[in-house]
Amino acid sequence: MSKQDFETLQEPILALRPEEVKIPNMPVHASVQEAEDLFEWVQEDQEKLEPAGLDWQLVTDLPLRAGALRYSEAIWNRDSLTREEAQEQWKEQSPEAFDLRDVLVHDFTHAFRRQSDLTNKVRAIREGGSNSDMLQDLNNLYQLGMDNKPLLDAIGFDWEKLEQARTWSDELASVLARANGERFDTEETKVIRDKAYTYLKEAVDEIRLHGKYVFWRDDNRYRGYISKYHRE
């Protein structure tokens, strides 16, 4: 989950000095998506990029850095909401999240029908119907799904649903906390968000720099190292 990604990278993110921190120059969700797309794009180019000087650990860490930013943005958005705004947002979005939880339970029950240990885990997730239960269920379903990909692939599972579960588990947990009246320091969480953005941007920029260098005469590969958001 994104929270775990942030906790894994918390030390180097928070260690960034104020003069190093960049303010996002594009929507954060676009930054995260571009980083995740870049991670997939760069895989086939390792043999050409490493000899050109790219530290492949930057590529390996890219999903973690993207997840850390996703989580930091969710926390800052939570803190920026008034209690009334958070309650309204929860009222609008939580029915879809509850429905997604039920859909995933339905899918998993079918996919795991011949595995009693997995069926028992799904049954345990199904119990409890509170708001916090639902958010924890989405988290647990994400982890369970990622651990059992072949069984889900066998039923033609739509993996976008699991990505949505991951997103809502983080974002709606923040909204619910605010709706329940918890108080937060918005300035502190904004600084952390900006640091997480900077930490992701450092890796993305370095990977793109090497990609543009290596593929400067190969338009088919070069295009994958350009920001789609800024290009459009």
Rank of each mutant, 00 (worst) to 15 (best):
S2T: 14
S2L: 14
D5L: 10
D5V: 04
D5A: 09
F6M: 09
I13C: 00
I13E: 02
L14E: 06
A15W: 09
E19K: 10
E20K: 02
V21K: 06
V21N: 01
P27M: 06
V28L: 12
H29G: 12
Q33F: 09
A35C: 03
E36W: 13
D37E: 06
F39I: 07
Q43A: 09
Q46Y: 15
K48Q: 08
K48M: 12
L49N: 03
L49A: 05
P51A: 00
A52R: 03
G53H: 02
L54S: 03
W56F: 03
Q57M: 05
V59A: 02
T60S: 10
R65N: 10
G67F: 03
G67Y: 04
A68L: 08
A68K: 04
R70T: 11
E73N: 08
E73H: 05
A74W: 00
I75L: 02
W76I: 02
N77S: 15
R78K: 13
L81A: 05
E84N: 03
Q89K: 13
W90C: 11
K91C: 04
E92R: 06
E96L: 05
E96D: 14
E96Y: 10
A97K: 11
F98G: 12
L104H: 02
V105M: 10
V105F: 01
D107G: 08
T109Y: 04
T109F: 07
H110L: 14
R114L: 14
Q115V: 12
D117R: 08
D117M: 09
T119K: 15
T119S: 15
V122Y: 05
R123Y: 14
I125W: 08
R126H: 09
R126M: 07
E127C: 15
G128H: 02
S130Q: 12
S130C: 07
S130F: 05
N131E: 13
N131L: 07
N131H: 15
S132A: 15
S132C: 15
D133W: 14
L135M: 11
L138N: 04
L138P: 01
N140D: 15
N140Y: 15
Y142H: 04
Y142Q: 11
Q143M: 14
L144F: 05
G145N: 05
G145Y: 02
M146W: 13
N148K: 08
N148S: 13
K149P: 09
K149F: 12
L152G: 08
L152R: 01
I155W: 05
I155H: 02
G156T: 10
F157T: 14
D158H: 14
E160K: 11
Q164T: 15
Q164M: 08
R166N: 03
T167A: 08
D170G: 11
E171C: 13
A173E: 13
V175M: 12
L176Y: 01
G181F: 06
R183F: 11
F184E: 13
D185S: 11
E187G: 07
E187V: 15
E188A: 02
T189Y: 07
K190P: 04
I192V: 09
D194V: 11
A196L: 05
T198D: 04
Y199Q: 02
L200K: 01
E202Q: 10
A203N: 01
D205I: 09
D205N: 01
I207A: 01
H210V: 07
Y213T: 06
V214I: 07
V214A: 01
F215D: 00
R217H: 14
N220M: 05
R221M: 03
R223E: 06
I226W: 13
K228G: 15
K228W: 06
H230D: 10
R231T: 11
E232P: 06
